[in-house]
């Protein structure tokens, strides 16, 4: 079975690239999105014998397809049907970053959150009630990281494995997502 694909989404300047580098190490491929002038980065994530393909989507503020970046990000989430989306947020800019989150959640693709730059939020004496945030977003998985300092990355890797395993178990052979009506599966 080919490894599941996870999309990395988020606003620009959230440290998404740092997280992407931390997850995929040197196992990266850089190219362009087909027919586009925008850089496409993908890489393999390995942790505890678990393997995933991670695609770094262009940084966008929304999924409204007003710009090419937004269109690419949206099309990937909708059409390439990744097993899940890891949404990276700047913890010092929660309100603006959460707008994209609401749009990603609307696509119905399973999503987890990474509150990055947590150290800077703490330095500014921000307090984020992650439990309440998770509850408000229907029990979404949330990890706090300070990727540029390497903090929280182990927990993030663990959580991504947990997250991906949930999706792998839920995903039916021919269905899109668990809530869709069952498709008759044909075994040859």
């Amino acid at each position: 079975m080919p490894p599941l694909t996870i999309a990395l989404a988020g606003n620009p300047n959230t440290g998404k690239s740092t997280i992407f580098n931390a997850l995929t190490g040197s196992r990266q491929r850089v190219g362009n999105w087909p027919g586009k002038t925008i850089e496409r980065k993908a890489g393999m994530f390995k942790h505890d014998g678990f393997e995933l393909e991670i695609v770094d989507l262009p940084g966008t503020y929304s999924l409204s397809a007003y710009s090419l970046e937004e269109e690419i990000a949206r099309d990937f989430i909708i059409k390439a049907t990744p097993a899940g989306v890891v949404n990276v947020l700047d913890a010092t800019n929660l309100e603006r970053n959460l707008y994209l989150t609401t749009q990603i959640l609307e696509t119905g693709v399973p999503t987890m959150l990474v509150l990055n730059m947590y150290d800077q939020a703490t330095a500014r004496q921000y307090r984020i009630d992650t439990a309440a945030l998770s509850t408000a977003l229907h029990g979404i998985l949330i990890v706090q990281t300070s990727a540029s300092r390497g903090e929280g990355l182990e927990t993030l890797k663990q959580t991504i494995v947990t997250f991906a395993q949930q999706q792998a178990n839920r995903r039916k052979p021919h269905g899109r997502y668990p809530n869709q009506p069952h498709q008759p599966s044909c075994h040859v």
Binding site: L94, E95, L98, Y99, T101, T102, Q103, R124, Q125, Y126, R127, I128, D129, T130, A132, L133, A136
Partner: peptide, 17 residues
């Protein structure tokens, strides 16, 4: 309305000095 939702949510989970 998405912005409203996000605004309320942020007020609920974030405390700033």
């Amino acid at each position: 309305q998405r912005y409203n939702f996000v605004h309320q949510l942020t007020n609920q989970v974030l405390t700033r000095p």
